[in-house]
């Protein structure tokens, strides 16, 4: 985990850029997570201060949305779709395979810090289930073998 002091200027810069935007809290949180990879808990006070909100309100918003995270993710984030369409095409077997292969559960990061595993409920790729994303890239008709290949490619980066 990085020291917040080195991240603080980034946070303040993002806050500054969104100062006059109506309904700016989600865009600010996205900005921070896009830049730092997560929303450092220590940033909550700065966000609350800039938006004239309580820390509880800001924390409440961060914790409400599945996408926002308050710990650093692995180098790559793998999201596996758990929704009905993917289930109809053996998505559950893929989910179990992924957990075994990476030796982690959902919301965890591998010990070497290379992969974080997250569930997702629909990627809109239901015509080619089961689907996963690795970072921002979506992959369809993913079999356990294809999953291993994709991760091997990413792991080598």
């Amino acid at each position: 985990m990085q020291d917040y002091q080195t991240q603080k200027s980034t946070v303040l810069d993002i806050l500054d850029k969104h100062q006059t935007m109506p309904g700016n809290l989600l865009p600010i949180l996205h900005g921070i997570q896009d830049t730092l990879g997560y929303i450092p808990p220590a940033a909550v006070a700065d966000i609350a201060n800039a938006l004239h909100l309580s820390k509880a309100e800001v924390h409440g918003v961060i914790s409400f949305y599945h996408y926002f995270r308050d710990t650093a993710p692995g180098k790559h984030t793998v999201r596996i779709c758990r929704a009905e369409s993917c289930q109809s095409m053996n998505g559950k077997a893929l989910e179990n395979h992924a957990k075994q292969h990476l030796n982690i559960d959902f919301h965890e990061t591998t010990a070497d810090g290379r992969f974080s595993l997250e569930p997702v409920y629909c990627l809109g790729n239901c015509a080619c289930s089961p689907s996963i994303t690795i970072d921002n890239e979506v992959f369809g008709r993913v079999t356990p073998e294809k999953f291993d290949q994709l991760l091997a490619c990413k792991g080598a980066e």
Binding site: G23, N24, L26, L29, H30, V61, F64, Y65, Y67, F68
Partner: peptide
Amino acid sequence: VRMGAGAYICGEETSLLESLEGKRG
């Protein structure tokens, strides 16, 4: 364009409006 953040309930119109306003959905 404003981005959601992975909350299914924000497809419900009033929850969506709360989210657009920067609140919990």
